[in-house]
Computed example of a mutant assay.
Amino acid sequence: MNPFERNFTASPDDIDELGHVNNAVWVRWIQDMATSHWQAVAAPEHIAAYFWVVTRHEIDYRGNIVAGESVTARTWIESAPKGAQFDRRVDFIDVNGKVIVRANTTWAMLDKATGRLARVRPEIAAPFMG
């Protein structure tokens, strides 16, 4: 595992009527993690040629944070791609080191020029593996 990390701090706009981060915000942060990881690690020519769309989110909510609190997000790819898709893990860890939100998401790679699914070749996946 070669995790990519980023921090998020909950703003007042992220808070729902229950007083904590809204589930839709967690989904946005999951997408932000995937995009940031792609931008940070992928080769420039791959960034120019491809983009990703989510096909599935599976999220376990085990805790939450309130406005002003922060989490560390950690994402990684656990297994090799299957055709145009691979699964991404994202954990959100609170200040006490507890995973409070855990997601497994499936993403599909599309060719920017054609808009069609594109097989994730080994050289595209390599920077994300191991």
Rank of each mutant, 00 (worst) to 15 (best):
N7C: 12
F8C: 03
T9H: 00
A10D: 00
S11V: 01
S11E: 01
D13Y: 02
D13M: 03
E17S: 13
G19R: 04
G19Q: 08
N22E: 01
N23D: 11
V25S: 02
V27S: 05
V27T: 09
I30H: 11
D32G: 01
D32R: 05
A34K: 04
S36R: 14
Q39C: 12
A40P: 07
V41M: 11
A42I: 03
A42C: 05
A43D: 15
A48W: 14
A48F: 14
A49W: 12
F51T: 14
W52C: 06
T55E: 11
T55Q: 13
R56S: 15
H57Q: 09
H57G: 06
Y61F: 15
R62P: 09
G63K: 08
I65P: 07
G68I: 14
T75D: 08
W76I: 05
I77L: 12
E78P: 14
A80Y: 10
A80L: 15
P81V: 08
A84H: 07
F86K: 00
D87S: 13
R88D: 10
R88L: 13
R88M: 12
R89W: 05
D91W: 05
F92Q: 10
N96Y: 04
G97C: 09
A103K: 01
T106G: 09
T106I: 08
A108N: 14
A108P: 12
D111P: 02
D111Q: 08
D111L: 01
